Amino acid sequence: MPMPLYEAKAQFFRMLGHPVRIRVLELLQEGPKPVRDLLAAIEVEPSSLSQQLAVLRRSGIVKATRTGSTVVYEPACGDVAELLAAARRILSVLLAGQQDLLDELRHTEGAR
């Protein structure tokens, strides 16, 4: 029996559920990057980056090309940029709501 769409979506979001993977996808929005540039920007152990890149590659969200000893990664499709932008918009709204609550808390604390 085929996987229900909601399960496929849940698997997709689980695949995104690691800070290094999100950071890689953000960096790749600027254009294809060799692993050495990703390592310099993210500052994680090479083995950790390699593991996270493998997850992204297996999922099909990024693709890798090798030239000699250099491996360059890039997004497999342009929709990743839209997804990251939507996440930023949603987080902005959520964090603004938290800021409102924090401001209210500070205001009530000062009234004591």
Rank of each mutant, 00 (worst) to 15 (best):
residue 62 V to R: 12
residue 91 L to A: 12
residue 60 G to F: 03
residue 104 E to A: 15
residue 45 E to Q: 14
residue 22 I to Q: 06
residue 57 R to E: 15
residue 13 F to G: 01
residue 51 Q to M: 15
residue 56 L to P: 07
residue 86 A to N: 07
residue 59 S to Q: 15
residue 35 V to I: 15
residue 112 R to D: 10
residue 105 L to M: 13
residue 38 L to N: 10
residue 30 E to N: 08
residue 96 A to K: 02
residue 87 A to F: 06
residue 23 R to Q: 10
residue 72 V to C: 01
residue 29 Q to R: 10
residue 111 A to H: 14
residue 16 L to C: 00
residue 57 R to P: 00
residue 4 P to A: 06
residue 7 E to L: 15
residue 44 V to C: 10
residue 57 R to Y: 09
residue 12 F to P: 01
residue 21 R to M: 02
residue 20 V to H: 02
residue 23 R to C: 06
residue 47 S to A: 09
residue 91 L to S: 07
residue 103 D to I: 11
residue 15 M to S: 03
residue 100 D to G: 13
residue 21 R to I: 03
residue 112 R to K: 12
residue 15 M to W: 00
residue 18 H to I: 00
residue 21 R to A: 02
residue 110 G to Y: 05
residue 62 V to W: 08
residue 72 V to Q: 07
residue 70 T to H: 05
residue 24 V to H: 06
residue 70 T to V: 10
residue 106 R to C: 08
residue 12 F to T: 01
residue 2 P to F: 12
residue 42 I to H: 04
residue 74 E to V: 09
residue 20 V to F: 02
residue 56 L to V: 07
residue 57 R to G: 10
residue 64 A to N: 09
residue 60 G to L: 06
residue 38 L to W: 01
residue 90 I to E: 00
residue 58 R to F: 12
residue 39 L to F: 09
residue 6 Y to D: 12
residue 66 R to P: 02
residue 23 R to N: 11
residue 101 L to H: 05
residue 87 A to E: 08
residue 58 R to D: 15
residue 24 V to M: 11
residue 9 K to M: 12
residue 33 K to T: 07
residue 53 L to V: 09
residue 67 T to F: 04
residue 68 G to E: 07
residue 81 A to R: 13
residue 42 I to R: 04
residue 73 Y to P: 00
residue 61 I to Y: 10
residue 77 C to D: 14
residue 65 T to E: 09
residue 42 I to G: 01
residue 6 Y to T: 11
residue 84 L to C: 08
